[in-house]
Design a protein around this nucleic acid. Sequence first.
RNA 1: GGCUCCGUAGCCAAGUGGCUAAGGCAGCGGAUUGCAAAUCCGCCAUGCGUGGGUUCAACUCCCACCGGAGCCUCCA
Length: 521
Amino acid sequence: MQENLPEYPLRVYNTLTKAKEPFRTLAPGKVGMYLCGPTVYAEAHIGHMVGPVIFDTVKRYLNYCGYEVTWVVNITDVDDKLIVRSREKGISMFQLATQMTADYMSNLQALGVDQIDRMPRATDSIGDIIRFVQELIDKGFAYASDGDVFFDVTKDPQYGCLSNRSAEDQQGEGGGAASRKRSAGDFALWKSAKPGEPSWPSPWGQGRPGWHIECSAMSRSILGQTFDIHGGGLDLVFPHHENELAQSRCCHSKPMVTYWMHNGLMRASNAAGKVGGKGDRDQGESASDVSGKISRSKGAGGLATLIAKHTGERIRFFLLRTHYRSTSVFGDEPLAEAGAALETFYRLFDRASKILGVSVYDIPHATRRSDFQSPVTPPALLVELLGLRDSFLSKMDDDFNTGGATADLFEMARSLNRFIDQSKLEDSSDESSREALRLGVSILREMSSLLGIFRKPVALTTDQSDSTKALGGLMELVIHLRAEARAKRDFATSDAIRDGLKEIGIAIQDGKNGTSWEIAK
RNA sequence: GGCUCCGUAGCCAAGUGGCUAAGGCAGCGGAUUGCAAAUCCGCCAUGCGUGGGUUCAACUCCCACCGGAGCCUCCA
């Protein structure tokens, strides 16, 4: 029954073992994957998108390799910060959560994250959570204390295995809760409600879930007691994932997760706009141009602005150009650079579309690794691209090295452009060369689809507003007049037109087959 | 203080115990162009923070040091 299992040399870095391990699923051909989603008390910032983008890519790749993946991202919609923030705004916690969830979803969409299967909310899972807490009490791993319930870290000899720390070293949450805990490292599973706070009835009185328990409860109800991949930001390793892991392992007497994957954190360059916090108070000198980790508590935000300015695809490409485990600094400059790099591909697609008489976005490509079939006697161009395809896939096999893989994408573009130049495809119509180009482009598209980029044309042509149509007509006219000037070798006039347009923000290019224009970015 | 991680060309960045250390941005030279732009070709780290060590061989492993980041409290 497991004859057609995927057999690719995938390796995944596991935070638990601190090593890359061969990828083996619990059930043949199936993958359960859980990513810790946002606490929806404020607008998302770019840091919140790193996990979704990389795991979206992971799922695409696993699908491509033949796995059937169930990907869960939770929404934490009950927590202290939600309570505080909603009071400040004078709305209910649920209203705030609804608003911020909508914000999060629109950001996901803008970045092309569309592979998520389930997005459970903590408040929809209260029953599961209470059941989980009760099981932990029954098994002696947790205790109720004056309306709160705490996990007893001393009952778990393996506590600390993920983040490599000992229970004794933990200071834990301070404040009023400390007095009700047996040891400092104990953490809350259930918090009693103060008057006026949102709460649910439980065997321990009115209250709400602690932070970590929801993930244990929701992952269990959707993915089971043990599943394949659990992800999140590096900052969640401790205490969040450590605690989650402890709860679930103790409750079920079996491992919670096979592979723990953690993405690096974003940092903001100060120049890009005050997103970070602590580096900002410079004394008018050039101390450091980079601030620390971005976070909401330091006033980070503006993802919607960032998307409007740079487009979601550009941000996605920027995130995928570096290794997911490394920290990277974002800002206008790096984002603009990613955009400049992307232009190469857009121009190539435009070029190829014109030659082939069909949008390259409509050219079919393999969607399964095993589906790909190379021609029996591939022309030289294809031999080149097939080699790059192998290279790309081997990088992806190695812990989803998207940063390394993008190099092959650029090489593919170069190869394709060179082919068009050398075979003078824009002037001739050699059918076999066009077929080679078509296949070559489909390979590039096959690889880029794994990264979730170049999914649809970026051209403004979908915008059919009157002003857009008028602009198109106007440009046609201007280009026509300029062509007449050029034909008369009146270059003073033609150059004046080009320079004038450039000042307005329109760039024109003279090609072999006429003049094209674009709105300069 | 404890626990992690990082330091590769002007900038960003992948990677490896031993072939020419990916790729991008910027720059330079050439082809092409009326000139540009785009595209293609070529150049751009005898060296991968510093100092030791292991090894036939290290940028890659070990130690120390310097510099940077994260976690130990909420955080993607």
